[in-house]
């Protein structure tokens, strides 16, 4: 099978982008903005989710157990709690474990000295169950049932906080989703126009190409590469803008607000870059293909 030259296709694409410089720049800028909005939104959601997870407010109830209960009795309570409908998992944290976990947390924050004097004899912490419930569980029913269990001293539930944080998150998601969809549509339209201009500039060449037996793919590949280049440049640009913004906020507000912790950018960078590249390139290809539909015919 005869092979076409990749350098020819890339060369034609770069020429096309250069000729329509203003439209190329506009396409890149709009797509970049769209990706930055999406990236900011994603970073915000990931941070909210992570903090909610850290705080144990996501579908979790903590029950404290009477200090006098024996291991057998605790095991029986465990069995009862596990059998309740809507309970997805139960994690038992013993008294010594609770103390160790608290020591570790405080040490991380630099306050290890506060609990240095505590040991097995004067351990004030109590054994507990961390119950994870399913999303469709009736929280009020479950909370009531747990309170009725003999040996459970206190039921701590963050449902209200979780609900509030979730509604704020959903509100932000709703507004940003619309903003993002609008920007994506605008991006596709701008890319369509950029490619159409490139096609128009080469219309005579395309006519001759068709008459001398060029296949649809030979004619369209340079324009699709143009879309891919726009997508790639916008993705990489968006990644660096996003990084700059995130690090600026990171520096401005710090990383730790007591119980709230901002995720370092390094932890987000790989998935963010991958998402930007996929979305940028796919948008570029979709935009090119829409503007080339009629040229795919003979």
């Amino acid at each position: 099978m005869r092979r076409y030259s990749a350098t020819y296709f890339v060369g034609q694409s770069l020429k096309g982008l250069w000729k329509n410089g203003v439209m190329t720049f506009a396409s890149i800028l709009v797509l970049l903005s769209c990706l930055v909005v999406m990236g900011s939104f994603s970073a915000l959601v990931v941070n909210i989710n992570q903090n909610m997870e850290n705080l144990g407010v996501v579908n979790k109830i903590v029950t404290f157990i009477d200090a006098e209960k024996t291991e057998e009795e605790i095991s029986a309570i465990y069995q009862t709690v596990t059998s309740f409908p809507g309970v997805s998992s139960v994690e038992y944290i013993s008294k010594p474990q609770a103390l160790e976990e608290e020591k570790a947390k405080l040490a991380e924050s630099g306050y290890a000295n506060l609990v240095d004097s505590l040991n097995e004899e004067n351990n004030p912490y109590r054994a507990s169950f961390t119950i994870t419930y399913t999303s469709d569980a009736s929280l009020a029913d479950l909370q009531y049932k747990l309170e009725q269990v003999e040996g459970i001293d206190r039921v701590k539930c963050y449902a209200d906080l979780a609900e509030t944080v979730n509604s704020v998150k959903n509100g932000i998601a709703f507004v940003l989703s619309w903003f993002m969809i609008t920007l994506f549509v605008v991006s596709i339209f701008v890319i369509i126009n950029t490619i159409k201009l490139a096609v128009y500039a080469r219309r005579n060449e395309i006519t001759v190409m068709r008459y001398i037996g060029a296949t649809g793919s030979f004619i369209t590949i340079p324009f699709i590469i143009e879309g891919i280049i726009i997508g790639l440049v916008a993705s990489v640009g968006a990644f660096f803008v996003q990084k700059g913004m995130y690090l600026y906020i990171f520096r401005l507000f710090g990383t730790d607000y007591g119980i709230i912790r901002v995720i370092p950018f390094a932890d987000l960078s790989t998935p963010l870059l991958a998402a930007f590249l996929v979305l940028g390139v796919v948008t570029g290809i979709v935009g090119s293909c829409i503007s080339l539909r009629k040229y795919l015919k003979a």
């Binding site: 068709r210 008459y211 001398i212 037996g213 060029a214 296949t215 649809g216 015919k297 003979a298």
Partner: peptide
């Protein structure tokens, strides 16, 4: 078929 048109046109010089 549309796909075969380019190959047909290679038999012609215009």
């Amino acid at each position: 078929t549309e796909k075969k048109v380019p190959y047909y046109r290679r038999k012609l010089g215009v």
